[in-house]
Design a protein around this nucleic acid. Structure first.
Lengths: 331, 331
DNA sequence: AAGAGTATTGCAAGCGCTTTCATAGCCGCT
DNA sequence: AGCGGCTATGAAAGCGCTTGCAATACTCTT
């Protein structure tokens, strides 16, 4: 009893125009005359027409599909960015298909295949250290590839993010300036985190500090690791006065454990996080963290995609959105 | 210099068969003879062929695209479920497109339009109380609609979840059994949470308890609300002995604030959460919570979609995956 | 040995759009 | 009146697959 979903043709004949005109009205309203547009609009409403984007994608070779590859979403520091990305990209007719690459990138190749099979307009990579082969492969195909949250030296195509090295440097200066002397770094095993950590160490020592102690933790990082990290402090030769955590979760866990142990933060032990998640400001004491503006990243990505879609050249392939150290109570 | 991406035809001619055969090999390998399959496989590798799924979707009227509508991902209690969903559904050729409906469902209609325009095979709704009109609309169209995390009395199509009322009931019994007498409920303003709360109250009183006090909080719920909730306890006439929180985040925030105030948990004040997020087990004290098996929900959804794709009838439109109260230190 | 049944394959007609190219109408100028 | 330059539209050729139907080649049965 359900009539088939209406096609462009039904709309066209109801409006007394050709399918070409309806298609133009839909994709480029400026091309059709006011009067015609009116009639077409009415016909669309009347028929309850919903375009078939798969057909459109096939014909136009533009899918309006964006693939977002991200390690995970359960405990991800990228979630704010992803959320902004989905919202902004969806706003003008794109759809975001999510792929989870997991802590290792084992499934990455397959996921890229899947994305390319959908003929996505763009692939957005977040927090992913693609290996050389994968990078080469991505370079040699035609969809736009946007790396976010890092600014690689040799981007695959376009990149929107910040310099992890700069974060490490600024954090070192910040803590040095506050008078801390013995930092301990809790570093998730991801290339990005490690880049921050080594930059931190480098600048810390350049400013006359001693080599910071380091604890590596697995990814994805989480609350529990902070607790373990705190306990590990006892084994250190000289007790640190500040723990620089690779994520706010770790910082939070460390804080909780410190409090349970009766250690006063920041007096006896200071703590910093990374990511400036909501909890950083909510935690007690509030957590000093590094804020990355996810919405800004998303809007830059959006801008880039629009430019690409319009066939415009991009002024720059590397967009630095910066970061801010948010000083709070914990350090 | 880049040759166009190969089409089915290139593969076919290289393998010395028709495009139909290659297509069959791809979609239903059992239909082609061993020898032929071998040749086709070789040709595929040789050409580096990647199917164009948009074309396939158009021709077969099956997109292998699944729309997942969820309120948010930044602070979502559904993330574990979503993650499992994406992983499982992606595993056999589907792609999941994410849509964020936000705390209100203002954009919901547009998002449904977008999904239908993609001719998705299914729409997965999570934690969304669609209004009557929307439900009616979803009912009257042909894609599979799966509601998750709740078991509506009148499902749109299929539902996979648990009974919020049962959670409220069991939690009431659990706490009653543990000897608590004055529960206080912190309830996010979402239909689901409220269903749990009213069921809790109902059964609590049926067991002879007094009407629990209630604090409503906005969604999405987060850490900070727990802290506020704790402070609000001071205004209550008789101090509760247990706070039943609508999410683990709230419970965590409450715990942190309680500890800062020197209140011992659970001796002076017990706390329960909901969702059994990772932090519930990591927090100190560990948080008593309600576990929902997201992976199970995902696999049921997956099963349902496979059945639908195969044209099989479903044994049941309502799948109850249950829940478990995880007793920990906080209550 | 003929007929029936089964396993493989090819032909070709779409799936529902977009877009190139051509046409028609109209305006202002010379 | 004739012409160039617009603007608005239509005709129709695909986009790259899937799949119903038909054909072919075998394998069994009787």
């Amino acid at each position: 009893m359900n009539a088939r979903t209406p096609r462009l043709e039904e709309v066209a004949s109801l409006a007394g125009v050709s399918t070409a005109t309806v298609s133009r009205f839909l994709n480029n309203p400026a091309m059709v005359a006011q009067q015609t547009a009116q009639r077409v609009q009415t016909a669309i409403v009347e028929t309850g027409y919903l375009p078939n984007l798969n057909a459109g994608a096939l014909a136009s070779n533009r899918s309006r599909l964006i693939a977002a590859l991200v390690p995970d979403i359960a405990q991800s520091i990228f979630n704010d960015t992803m959320e902004a990305m989905i919202e902004q990209l969806s706003a003008d007719g794109n759809s975001v298909v999510m792929s989870l690459t997991g802590p290792d990138n084992r499934r990455l190749e397959a996921q890229i295949d899947a994305a390319l099979s959908r003929r996505v307009d763009a692939i957005i990579l977040t927090g992913i250290v693609s290996d050389v082969e994968t990078r080469k492969r991505l370079k040699s195909q035609s969809a736009t590839v946007i790396e976010t949250w890092g600014l690689p030296e040799d981007p695959i195509d376009v990149a929107v993010g910040f310099s992890h090295a700069a974060v490490g440097r600024e954090m070192a200066r910040f803590l040095h300036g506050r008078g801390y002397r013995r930092p301990h770094l809790v570093v998730p095993r991801s290339g990005r985190s490690q880049a921050r950590a080594s930059s931190f160490a480098e600048h810390w020592m350049a400013d006359g500090g001693e080599q910071p102690s380091i604890l590596e933790v697995n990814i994805p990082s989480h609350f529990g690791q902070g607790r373990l990290a705190f306990r590990g402090l006892a084994d250190l030769e000289n007790r640190p006065d500040v723990v620089v955590c690779g994520s706010d979760w770790i910082a939070q866990g460390l804080l909780v454990e410190a409090q349970a142990a009766g250690v006063r933060v920041p007096d006896q032990l200071a703590v910093t996080g990374f990511g400036n998640l909501r909890l950083a400001g909510d935690m007690r004491p509030t957590i000093t963290s590094v804020d990355i503006d996810g919405a800004r990243i998303a809007s830059e990505v959006h801008r880039i995609l629009r430019a690409r879609a319009a066939g415009e050249a991009l002024p720059s392939l590397l967009v630095d959105v910066g970061f801010r150290i948010i000083a709070r109570e914990s350090a």
